[in-house]
Structures are given as structure tokens and as C-alpha cells.
């Protein structure tokens, strides 16, 4: 590992959560504007986390603090891995570990709503993980290697070789931004379906750290989406921005899904599309 990689890794560690926080802010402002409201300041997510940091509350389980830290480390690690040009598939697994820790902490809580949220969180994981993985496999096939730098160094935009994974990736972005499904209920806006799903029992500082982990996750997902047009840093930012905007528009103009529809319909359809694309790449 040379010094350059090291600097990049440190930059990933610090910048990725900040970018994720900004994305959350943009999400809320744009959503508000789409509903012809003013919306909160752009920095609102940071204020929210700052406030949660300074709250004092008894934990709902002795184990949650541990799982929250583990989730945070895993999420940040996946960012660092992308920044340092490591294996993208392993980065994905590390990120999935973070989601598992969040669910585990929720299982440990003492509120039944928290456990309900954990169950649904897992089924949601089941719905988006495979298609995300197949998307990464498609990119790896086209790029000829699994590391992030090869993805970025691929000749020409990858998008034209894999148009069919776009719906899948969009679906992943929607889920990761906590827009769909509505009965998981962890989004800021329509959050009262079943209390707050997997986040019900997290509070105070633990919740703040979890929010930072969530930002890091969002950055990873958008970053991987941006590999679709990675000819220059600018195109990558634009691609990620387009995915974000598309997700926001879809969220605002359409109804949200329940986890059953997601698992029974959306996941298979997007997965079949992505698989078809993967097979194409092999037939080429």
C-alpha cells in the first residue's frame, strides 16, 4: 500500500460521511420543493445528529451500543475500501454486515416495534442485496477486475454495456435512502406506519452514530452507481446526482411499496433484468 492510497483512504473516511449528510440534506430540501414547500436548511441532517449526540437517555438493551459501533465501523470501512480502490464485492459484503448489525441491535431491544422493524429490515435486505450484487458483478465483468480503480478506469461509460441494471440500482438507492418500503418506516417523512421500524429502540448518541453510518452507506451506494459513467470525476458526480434525483422524483410521484410487494415483485423483476444483462456481457 503506497502513501497515495493511504491519503485517499483517509479522505474517504472523513469525506464520505459528510457527503452522505449533504445528500440527506439535499434529499429533504428537494423533496420539500417538489411539494412546494421551503423545507429545512441544507445542513439540517447535521443539526439533527448534533442534537441526538447531546441527548441523555437510558439504552433499551445492553447490547445496542456495541452493535451501533460495529455498524458504524463497517459502514465507514466500506467507504474507505472504495476510496482506496479495494475489491468492490468485498466492500459490498462489509456494507451488508453493517446492515446486519443494525438489525441485530434492533432485535436486542425491548420494544416489540423494534423487533418487528428488524424482521422487515431483513426482508428488505433480502430484496435489494442480490440485485445490487449482480450489478457489481456486471461492472466487474465489463471492467475485467473487481477492484474499484479498474471500474473507474474502464474504457468509455459502463452504462451502455449494462442498461438493464439501472432499474435495479435505482431500486437499491430508493431502499437505501429509506424511501421504500413504507412499512419499514424509517424515513423522515412518512415514518409513522410502525413507529420507526428498526430504529425504534435506538436513541440519543447511539442513534446519532447510526445516522452517520447511514450517511456512509448512502455514499457507498451512490458511489457504486456512479461507476456507470466513470470517465471523469465530474461525470461520476453527475451520475450519482441523477440517481439521487430520480429516486426523489419516484418517491414523490408514486406510492411506496410494502415489503411483500418488494420481495415478491420488484426484487425478482429487477434481478431478472440484471441477470439478463450479465448473460449478455458473457455472450459478447
Amino acid at each position: 500500500m503506497n502513501l497515495n492510497t493511504f491519503y485517499l483512504a483517509v479522505a474517504g473516511l472523513i469525506l464520505a460521511p459528510l457527503v452522505g449528510g449533504l445528500v440527506a440534506g439535499v434529499d429533504r430540501v428537494v423533496t420539500a420543493r417538489l411539494q412546494s414547500r421551503m423545507g429545512p436548511p441544507l445542513m439540517q441532517p447535521f443539526y439533527d445528529v448534533g442534537k441526538l449526540m447531546s441527548k441523555v437517555i437510558a439504552p433499551a438493551s445492553h447490547w445496542q451500543g456495541m452493535f451501533v459501533r460495529w455498524a458504524l465501523v463497517a459502514s465507514l470501512a466500506s467507504d474507505v475500501m472504495l476510496a482506496a480502490g479495494a475489491d468492490v464485492l468485498m466492500c459490498f459484503f462489509v456494507q451488508a454486515a453493517s446492515a446486519s448489525f443494525v438489525a441485530l441491535g434492533a432485535f436486542c431491544g425491548n420494544s416489540p416495534y423494534s423487533k418487528l422493524g428488524a424482521q422487515r429490515e431483513l426482508f428488505q435486505l433480502l430484496a435489494y442485496e442480490p440485485v445490487f450484487m449482480v450489478g457489481i458483478l456486471c461492472m466487474a465483468k465489463a471492467a475485467g477486475a473487481f477492484d474499484a480503480y479498474s471500474f473507474m478506469a474502464a474504457q468509455g461509460p459502463l452504462l451502455f454495456k449494462m442498461p438493464l441494471i439501472v432499474p435495479g440500482l435505482l431500486f437499491v438507492v430508493l431502499v437505501k435512502l429509506r424511501k421504500s418500503p413504507f412499512d419499514i418506516a424509517a424515513s423522515h417523512h412518512m415514518h409513522q406506519e410502525v413507529v420507526r421500524g428498526v430504529y425504534t429502540d435506538y436513541a440519543g448518541r447511539d442513534f446519532a452514530l447510526l445516522e452517520i453510518a447511514h450517511w456512509a452507506d448512502v455514499t457507498v451506494v451512490l458511489w457504486i452507481c456512479s461507476f456507470l459513467w466513470a470517465t471523469s470525476p465530474l461525470t461520476m458526480v453527475v451520475t450519482a446526482g441523477l440517481f439521487l434525483f430520480a429516486a426523489l422524483v419516484i418517491d414523490n410521484i408514486s406510492a411506496r411499496l410494502t415489503w411483500r410487494t418488494m420481495l415478491g415483485r420488484v426484487a425478482p423483476i429487477t434481478l431478472i433484468l440484471a441477470t439478463a444483462n450479465l448473460v449478455w456481457l458473457y455472450l459478447e
Binding site: 437510558a58 439504552p59 438493551s61 447490547w63 451500543g65 451501533v68 459501533r69 425491548n110 416489540p112 423494534s114
Partner: peptide, 19 residues
Amino acid sequence: VGIKVLGRQSQAKLATPYI
């Protein structure tokens, strides 16, 4: 880090369950 936090939190009095 996790074990440290666990050690700290395992002394804490738990909140009443939200039902």
C-alpha cells in the same frame, strides 16, 4: 470499541420498553 461500550452500557439501567 464495541466491547468497551458494552462494558459501559451493561451497568446502565434499561429504559422501559416502548409498547
